[in-house]
Nucleic acid binder design. Structure first.
Length: 844
RNA sequence: GCCGGAGUGGCGGAAUAGGCAGACGCGCACGACUCAAAAUCGUGUUCCCAACGGGAAUGAGGGUUCGAUUCCCUCCUUCGGCACCA
């Protein structure tokens, strides 16, 4: 029976069936072991598992397996993020109900996932579109509503005209502000929508203490939230006399608040600019300027935000006729409107400091508005108090000055140093902040770009928002005993821009939970990111019906120890789930500040042409085909080998042959029946050394998610084993140890073939429940090391010295070398540096 | 414009803590086996100088150092994020 062929199909189906039957991957609470919750992002059930899923999941699985062998009780669950647009869009086209289609797709994908041979605990599978799941999605909504974190507001929101629904700010991408799902540029609509008050946690979300997340994700989230420190300052409206009869506007004397990051430049504020949409614009506009202002507002409204947002667009604006008083120097300054001021940021109005802001400078130049320098880069150029207090033009400036300097033209602050630091770290800003607070002019303030999370979607295939509206009692949550609000099945999916549930004849009619009178249900559904914000909790106990999760399971397994998935979710799912966790924590539902302690992102597998894979480009690699041709073990091995996991790389159809060859060569080596021969002690010692060195390396690489070098180390060891066999090592104790350790190291990567060979060698089932081997440091140690000897930085020779050799011994061995002597030319070296275990460096 | 990642052979990539650049694999070349091919096995494979031998080389240029893919500065290319954000 020397000639056993490697048959991937046979051994993979055999072991998958056995593992299933034995419940080898069932994870149950076991207080005798430390737990490890390994989580990988759940797929959307599109109906086909693609190579990207394999790339994300198999290294995650390998590491979960490794942790299990290290002695942890590991939970590695899988499920489906099953609500969402594609199923609904397919329904519109084909008429097949989304639930039908989704369940079919799940059956198919479950099968594909099983072909991976991963250690998923299927008993814990969770599917977000099933009522027993979304009951709790609805329940969570109500918890957030009860704590004031869910609210309804009419506001201008992003709407995708192709997907026919509103989107959260995070789901609008790129320069052209397109829909994250379909790429269509979004439009603005004024709509009454449900939001989660995520901004309440803005500062906390900026804090990543205690979590081991990639710097890139932390940076992306930080940029997204974009905290900026500054001040809110009140300017009084002073419109003087508008008309011949001295009539004043209704807002005369009222205060308008602006946000600025540069309160130190207040003395240079020579005009104000309001956003055209600012509610006070019509109030402050004088009759004389009304026509021009209305015209400008209409023009601004016609433009899309993209057109308005074009950075290099020339600044435009019109004067309102209104004035305000600069609170620091009482200068009467004109109020303009311009579309470079956005209603959506700060207060929708700014103080314009043309001398020290490029945009304000361009605007002032164009409309001939005064420019007053208040920060001088050269402190002694201007005599103190040489101020031209707001009004006169400063002709000398060529551009706005943004750098450090000292304050000038700023009354008692003249001479105060200003750095380029932001916020309180800047001495000038700090002083002015204190002073304006004292004077009651303004106060220190923080602004964020981050917006509350808009969760209403005008689509059918999502979790219903469990709210009821009564004419008398307004909005109220559906009582707990009526949850879940079930999605009706008989719905027409017409893409009308309105929620299909709204068009259902009866579903929306219900009774008010307060008065039992007639009321209507909310017909929008929830953003599917709501479902995925808590799926890691449902995995704990997917069949539990007394709450979203079983507290006993929660106490044992949470938090997630290792989370893996794509970085494209940095400012979406990964931010939502952190917010969600904090919101639940404040409701007393969960504990701790963060849901996922460690995060690692995989890169992307590109097509062989180096482009992103897509059906239209025809460069899609189908894992099913690869599994059929090579077997899952080879696909797993190649996926882990061919790129740095966090970087990704283009697929290479020839490259996978290398992984296939490796698996076959291991197979051949391990099933080989070469009779034991006499190997020298040297051979046996070298074999052991290589085995333990490899073990040390593989262990470290698993710890560090460096999967590609795990495979190359295993390939190297295999090559060594082939040589050792040639030298007669087969059958020796050292050989047996090598085989045993090899299969244990291989088990997380190629679980089927490792199990098969483990059985072949007559070891007790299963290799996957074995303890991870211990490195024998003594065996791994080198006796003799080869050191390169450099002369003036160039390697001129290599010497062999005992590993234990002292500095003097190494030094004299190096100097004794013939090759080195040649380069020394009899001269005495200036310096000899011995880096122990590394090299010798001689300077002449 | 701001923030972050990445630039190493024909290709994917490797290189504990600043110490032999190119591990491992793909590809390619040559050889063995074969009637032949595939598979398999073996050898070689950064570039330049014909070469024993030597020189150059980790995006470019500079710096620190006995020594730099690794640290510092300037710049280029590329990918991603943000952006009239006050």
């Amino acid at each position: 029976m020397t000639d056993i062929h490697y048959n991937s199909k046979e051994i993979e189906s055999k072991w998958q069936a056995k593992w299933d039957a034995d419940q080898l991957y069932r994870s149950v609470i076991d207080n005798s072991k430390p737990k490890h919750y390994a989580l990988t992002m759940l797929p959307y059930p599109s109906g086909d598992l693609h190579i990207g899923h394999w790339y994300a999941m198999t290294p995650s699985d390998a590491r979960a397996r490794y942790m299990r062998m290290k002695g942890y009780n590991v939970l590695f669950p899988m499920g489906f993020d099953a609500f969402g647009l594609p199923a609904e869009n397919a329904a519109i086209k084909s008429g097949v109900h989304p639930m039908t289609r989704t369940r079919e797709n799940i059956v198919r994908m479950r099968k594909q996932l099983r072909s991976m041979g991963a250690m998923f605990d299927w008993e814990r599978e969770a599917v977000s579109c099933e009522p027993e799941y979304y009951k709790w999605t609805e329940w969570f909504f109500i918890q957030l509503y009860k704590t004031g974190l869910a609210y309804r507001k009419m506001s201008p929101v992003d709407f995708c005209p192709n997907c026919n629904t509103t989107l959260a700010r995070e789901q609008v991408w790129g320069d052209d502000r397109h829909c994250e799902r379909c790429g269509t540029p979004v439009i603005k609509k004024d709509l009454d929508q449900w939001f989660f008050k995520a901004t309440k946690y803005a500062d906390e979300l900026l804090n990543f203490d205690g979590i081991d997340w990639p710097q890139t994700v932390k940076t992306l989230q930080t940029n997204w939230i974009d905290r900026s420190e500054g001040a809110e300052v009140k300017f009084k409206i002073d419109d003087g006399q508008w008309t011949m009869d001295g009539q004043r506007s209704t807002v005369n004397g009222q205060s308008i608040t602006i946000f600025t990051t540069r309160p130190d430049t207040l003395w240079g504020a020579t005009f104000m600019v309001f956003s055209p949409e600012h509610p006070l614009v019509s109030e402050i506009t004088t009759p004389k300027n009304k026509a021009a202002v209305e015209e400008y507002k209409a023009q601004a409204a016609r433009q899309t935000e993209i057109q308005r947002g074009a950075v290099d667009k020339e600044k435009t604006g019109v004067f309102t006729g209104g004035y305000a008083i600069n609170p620091v120097n009482q200068a009467r300054i004109p109020i303009w409107i311009a579309d470079y001021v956005m209603m959506s940021y700060g207060t929708g109005a700014i103080m314009a400091v043309p001398a020290h802001d490029e945009r304000d400078f361009a605007f002032a130049k164009k409309y001939d508005l005064p420019i007053v320098e208040v920060i001088s880069p050269t402190p002694h150029q201007l005599p103190p108090n040489s101020g031209n207090l707001g009004g006169e033009k400063e002709g000398g400036m060529e551009s706005a000055y943004i750098g450090a300097g000292v304050m000038v033209n700023s009354a008692q602050f003249n001479g105060t140093k200003v750095s380029t630091e932001k916020g309180r770290k800047n001495p000038g800003i700090a002083k002015v902040l204190d002073w304006i607070a004292e004077q009651g002019i303004g106060k220190e303030s923080v602004n964020y770009r981050y917006r509350d999370w808009l969760i209403s979607r005008q689509r059918y295939w999502g979790a219903p928002i469990p709210m009821v509206n009564c004419e008398i009692h307004g909005w109220n949550p559906v009582p707990n005993d009526q949850l879940p609000v079930i999605l009706p099945e008989d719905v027409e999916w017409r893409p009308t821009g309105e929620s299909p549930l709204k068009l259902h004849p009866t579903w929306k009619n219900t009774t008010c939970p307060v008065c039992n009178g007639p009321a209507t249900r909310e017909t929008d559904t929830m953003d599917t990111f709501m479902c995925s914000s808590w799926y890691h909790l449902r995995y704990l106990s997917p069949k539990y019906d007394k709450g979203p999760f079983d507290p006993a399971e929660y106490d044992y397994w949470m938090p997630v120890d290792t989370y893996t998935g794509g970085i494209e979710h940095a400012t979406m799912h990964l931010l939502y789930t952190r917010f969600f966790h904090k919101a639940l924590r404040d409701s007393g539902i969960v504990e701790g500040h963060e849901p996922m302690l460690q995060l690692r992102n995989q890169g992307m597998v590109l097509g062989e042409d180096g482009d992103k894979m897509s059906k239209s480009k025809g460069n899609v690699i189908a894992p099913d085909v690869l599994v059929d041709k090579y077997g899952a073990d080879t696909v797993r091995a190649y996926i882990m080998f061919f790129a740095r996991w966090e970087m990704g790389a283009p697929w290479d159809s020839q490259g996978i042959e290398g992984a296939a060859r490796w698996v076959r060569r291991v197979w051949t080596l391990f099933t080989d029946q070469t009779p034991p021969a006499a190997a020298s002690d040297e051979t046996k010692k070298n074999l052991r050394r290589k085995v333990h060195q490899t073990l040390r390396k593989v262990t470290r690489d698993f710890d560090n998610f460096e999967f590609n070098t795990i495979i190359s180390s295993l390939m190297e060891l295999m090559n060594e084993m082939y040589k050792a066999r040639e030298a007669g090592a087969a059958g020796t104790d050292e050989w047996k140890e090598a085989q045993e350790i090899y299969l244990k190291m291989m088990a997380p990567v190629t679980p089927h073939v490792a199990e098969e060979l483990w059985a072949y060698l007559g070891r007790p089932y299963s290799v996957h429940t074995q303890q991870w081997p211990q490195v024998d440091e003594a065996a791994a140690k080198e006796d003799v090391i080869e050191l390169p000897v450099q002369v003036n930085g160039k390697v001129r020779d290599r010497i062999s010295v005992p590993a234990e050799a002292g500095e003097e011994e190494i030094k004299s061995a190096a100097l004794a070398s013939e090759a080195i002597q040649k380069f020394l030319e009899g001269k005495e070296p200036k310096k000899v540096i011995v880096a122990k275990g590394r090299l010798v460096s001689i300077v002449i």
